Amino acid sequence: MTALKIRGLERDRRVEGWAWRNPVALGRFVQELASVYQAEIRTVVDAWMRSRPHDAAPDLPLPRSRPPSERTYDAWGALNEQQRACLEQVYREDQMTEVEVWLQRRHQMVLPPADQWRRLPLQVKAPTDLIEKPRLQQRMRELGLDTAKALILIRQLTGLVEIVHDSIETGDSGPCGRVCVVLTRQGRAAARSGLGEPRQKAPPAHLLSRWHWSQLLRVADAGSEGIADSRMTTKARFFLGVGYRPGGKHPGRGFIDTQPLRDTSGAVVDYMWTITELGKRHVLAYAHLYQVLYPDVELPSMTENHTSRTNRLE
């Protein structure tokens, strides 16, 4: 399938083709459609699955993992032993914070933007009885570095780590100054390559992030009863819901929708989110890929086999 053939189809001409029901061929087809119409791949995939419910789901392979670049290797290789140890501790703290944020999101907690929570406190200028010592400060002390020596080392990691000065509230004592460390993308990549840790794969364009996938499973697992609107995070329902345009840019995926919940008098008391037919198709068609991407995200009884998953969703 090429752009020339698509143009022929639009002009009502007969076009030669084969393997139209092959998922891999359909995957190449939707990629060509997205290119010709300058649309996002996820939009074309959703439209295909919504309008052709009896056809196979397009199969778009997971992106291949790429080895670290020479620039990344050089950045790590240019560091001495002490600088590498310092960068490793900053990287470990960054990854621990990332896991904590993900767990908090799963519990519906409101979080600041990433440029805030990725600030790793190294020093808080407040009495020790008011606030605990930052974890990163303790990590540096395990390396035999006090805060002053750690800051000297961190300043040497140009382009890999940044130092940010801000303040936080500590109750009645008012704002207290804070020294934070921010790991840059280049620093994260250098640490991964030096420590031999693979880079986390980003999901393909038609698949969901870890967070949105877990939210879709919540709604799917609730079945026909659904989940109350008050228990759905704003960003998740805007991105997954029918008829939404978060930020006025891209429409929601249409995987979940609201149904009014009425009392005995017929008055609406709440709105319940339930999974749509398109959402069901997406879960059943791509659950195997999500298991590769996010093996730690539990897939309930839907993953036992295709039949049990279909019964569960229906």
Rank of each mutant, 00 (worst) to 15 (best):
Q116S: 03
W76E: 00
A228C: 06
L183Y: 08
L130F: 15
L160W: 15
L284D: 03
L216K: 08
L33M: 14
R105C: 00
A190T: 10
Q186K: 08
L143Q: 06
V101N: 03
A150Q: 08
S224C: 02
G279S: 06
E98S: 09
V161I: 13
R141P: 03
P300K: 04
Y73I: 06
Y294H: 07
Q259S: 06
I152R: 13
K149H: 09
R210K: 13
L9D: 00
H54N: 13
A236C: 06
Q138M: 13
R188Q: 11
G196F: 12
R11W: 00
V219S: 01
L60N: 08
Q95L: 08
G8Y: 01
A75C: 05
H250N: 10
G194Q: 06
G266L: 11
P198A: 03
G252I: 13
D270M: 04
T43D: 14
L195E: 04
I152A: 10
L313M: 11
E81Q: 15
I163H: 03
R139P: 02
D263K: 13
T303N: 05
A205Y: 01
W48L: 01
M1I: 01
T184G: 00
R281E: 03
K235N: 03
T303A: 14
V283G: 02
I168N: 01
V15E: 00
L313A: 07
L130Q: 15
D296L: 04
G252S: 09
E277P: 07
I152W: 10
V283N: 02
L278Y: 09
T128N: 07
Q137T: 15
E70S: 10
P53I: 08
R7Y: 06
R64F: 07
A25Q: 01
V292N: 02
R185M: 04
D59F: 14
R84Q: 13
P295K: 12
A75H: 10
H165G: 02
Q82F: 03
E314D: 12
W18P: 00
R92H: 07
Y37D: 02
P246M: 05
R237P: 02
V124C: 02
R309P: 08
G254I: 14
V269E: 04
M1L: 04
Y91D: 00
D59H: 14
G177T: 13
L261R: 15
Q200P: 08
D257G: 07
G252P: 14
R141G: 11
I163N: 01
G27F: 10
A228I: 12
N80E: 10
V90W: 14
P58S: 02
I168W: 05
